[in-house]
Design a protein around this nucleic acid. Sequence first.
RNA 1: GCGAUCGUAGCUCAGUUGGUUAGAGCGCCGGUUUGUGGUACCGGAGGUCGCGGGUUCGAACCCCGUCGAUCGCCCCA
Length: 424
Amino acid sequence: MSSKTPQAIRGTQDIFGADAEAFAFVVETFERVRKLYRFRRVEMPVFEKTEVFSRAIGETTDVVAKEMYSFTDRGDESLTLRPEFTAGIARAYLTNGWQQHAPLKVATHGPLFRYERPQKGRYRQFHQLDAEIIGAAEPQADVELLAMADQLLKELGITGVSLHLNTLGDAASRDAWRAALVEHFRAVKGELSEDSQERLEKNPLRILDSKDPRDKRFVGDAPKIDAFLSDEARAFFAAVTSGLDAAGVKWVRAESLVRGLDYYRHTAFEFVPDEGSEAASKLGSQSTVLGGGRYDGLMESLGGPATPAVGWAAGIERLAMLVERSFATPAVAILPETEAQELRAIEVAAMLRRQEIPCWTAFKGNPKKRGIKAQTDGAFALLYVRPSDESGREFNITSASVTDAEIVLSRRVMQILGEDRFRQ
RNA sequence: GCGAUCGUAGCUCAGUUGGUUAGAGCGCCGGUUUGUGGUACCGGAGGUCGCGGGUUCGAACCCCGUCGAUCGCCCCA
């Protein structure tokens, strides 16, 4: 391609065909399930003051420093395309007085932007589903949030994905655990990977999920969070797990599961493909399909009152990759026999569509070529619109109905047209 | 930010140790046939081989750079 046509921006996608249908199916299913759990729909701005994200996420983190799409507007204000939903929702909760609705259950979905190197399942503009419960400190909120996630995946027909669950404890538990980890790994620092030697200073918890075999040797006997949990934190986690069991949500304990940001407390979770599963091979190395946790400290970082909250987000593209399903819609092709029937064909198609019959139409070509095209496009029935003959017969439908839905549609079409003769 | 692989027609791809005028299938456009089932036949348009430089008598092919894509690392809100 050497023309002057502008190219799409790196890391953006033009989603079409079966992929687009799968994407829509994910969103529609999410909308349906969130209503079952009575999460209220919110629509959020795609951009916010940069401050919203930098304060929520932490000024110094890599993600804020170099992975946000930030720009200055004409008023010299630094704005950022949202890299996540949570910070914006937290801001709205504070600025709109949504405290009055607490505990507030909200859900949304849409595009997010992160300046990262694209790879399988990771784009610069990508799309997520999001669910949050704000203003509830109770473990029951975590349970309900996770039950919804679990049901969503089931209704999408996704298999081979499991809920990995961990607790990070309260602030004191977490700090004590972190200190013990640093001590543990520092003792073997020289034998760790180069990356992990750096993590030791910057982000020691991340050593736990290192992929490097040199690190994995020391992860097994690393200190466990359980040894550092306060009684309250232990009780909280026990309430979450027993609630999940009661709700029939399967989970596995993942002691190495951590979060990248410091504001997380207590529950942390991810739905990830089982090793060796089909889902795992479809997703490549970017494999977490849904993840979240409790972020009790976030609201304060935005200048609000201490407000407990828990939430998750899920990549729509990644979910769509796991959806196994045919999105073919049965359709009846409307084929005018000659040019003189063009208008009649338009009339017939309009009438059928008002009766919820999906119609395939072409804009030009002889009936033969239209018919062939219609078949390759998946039409199961061809309705020829002809000049009325002496018996008043105007239509000729030939149908290769296979599925029940197609047979039902064929019958309805004939009924609507008042025509009972049709050939198989 | 780092690494590997790859860039040929609208799409998927072939293209010999570097050697005349770069090919196929699908799609697209036009036509013929066929009163009807994922047709058949005939014809046509469409490519500065990602871009720039170099080596060579000669480059789609070799070298360097660059841009892009893909996959992985880092990171992962």
